[in-house]
């Protein structure tokens, strides 16, 4: 019973302390909000980079064209071999007839192309396999496999060399985005650490006298730490709420406006889909930094 009495008093004292330390708490809430905001932004940025990367990756493939005298059976055999490749995400077979149909469909309104096609007579197009890899860097090895394998004799052309510059540029873009993400993450961690450190210094200055008095009037360490812990939790929660109050409307407003520029990536949708993870992480960061800094400050003066 006595312990519940003490706990309820600790919670009440923590709440009153939070209410009455106006300017210090407001400053702490803003500082912590900044850290939480940076984290949230980093999370959304990472999601955006992933989405863009996937989107671009979907659009990249290489095509292998087979000699006109190669049989469908041989092409399908090549397809089956390629499908066994761990790097290959999908292989699509396009027969010479299908290729012609698509071509005529596409250029049916272009009289010059259509008359040229008629003049040539028959089907000038070749059967092909459209190959998609899981990652941009895997196309080179797929291409090497085809050139050096048993299908070399029936392959007319692989357009890897034509697409190579695009694929390499894409590959370097992805690696650039990843590097930027890592650098941004490190900067963010440094900022968070320095902010937390500053928070600790402020907390120490703010609570030094109070802790000294508490000790001298006979408070136990538990009774001293308790209210500071409660204050830390409240500061963390308010910092999260402030971040959400800014982030939710801003992302809701910007989401449709940036969707085109971000190749269909919806900031708000991504945020809403991952809300539980983001919210728990925000609480962990906000409450964690705030209570940690308060408790460190208290600990220093518990030795008085």
């Amino acid at each position: 019973m006595e312990i519940f009495n003490s706990i309820s008093k600790i919670i009440f004292q923590g709440y009153m302390g939070f209410r009455r330390q106006g300017s210090f708490n407001i400053a702490s809430i803003f500082i912590l909000s900044l850290v939480i905001f940076l984290f949230t932004f980093l999370f959304v940025f990472y999601g955006m980079a992933q989405s863009l990367s996937l989107n671009l990756q979907e659009r990249i493939d290489i095509s292998v064209y087979f000699d006109s005298d190669s049989s469908e059976k041989q092409v399908l055999e090549a397809k089956s071999e390629l499908s066994k490749f761990a790097e290959v995400k999908s292989v699509e077979y396009v027969s010479a007839e299908e290729a012609l149909n698509k071509f005529t469909e596409k250029y049916q309104n272009n009289s010059i192309i259509m008359s040229s096609l008629e003049e040539i007579g028959g089907n000038p197009l070749l059967a092909s396999l459209n190959i998609q890899a899981f990652e941009a860097g895997q196309y080179a090895s797929i291409s090497n496999f085809l050139i050096s394998g048993s299908f070399e004799d029936i392959i007319y052309k692989i357009n890897y060399s034509e697409k190579k510059p695009v694929i390499e540029r894409f590959f370097s873009l992805i690696s650039g985005v990843n590097k930027a993400g890592i650098i941004f993450g490190i900067v963010l961690i440094l900022v968070a650490i320095s902010i937390a450190f500053n928070q600790i210094r402020l907390a120490i200055r703010n609570s030094r006298k109070e802790i000294k008095i508490m000790r001298l009037v006979g408070a136990t360490n538990f009774m001293i730490r308790g209210p500071f812990f409660v204050q830390g939790v409240l500061i963390g929660i308010f910092a999260v709420l402030l971040t959400l109050l800014i982030f939710v409307p801003v992302s809701y407003f910007l989401s449709p406006r940036l969707e085109m520029a971000l190749s269909g990536f919806e900031i708000f949708g991504h945020f809403a889909d991952n809300f539980f993870f983001i919210f728990s992480s925000q609480i962990a960061i906000g409450v964690g930094i705030s209570t940690f800094s308060s408790l460190i400050a208290v600990h220093k003066y518990l030795k008085i």
Binding site: E2, S6, K9, R20, G218, A219
Partner: peptide, 23 residues
């Protein structure tokens, strides 16, 4: 004096009793 600046007179005086778990 070493009073708690953010507590009223009543709260300042009550604090030592709170620390011993008085109701």
């Amino acid at each position: 004096y070493e009073l708690f600046n953010k507590k009223t007179s009543y709260e300042n005086i009550a604090y030592p009793m709170e620390t011993i778990g008085a109701n």
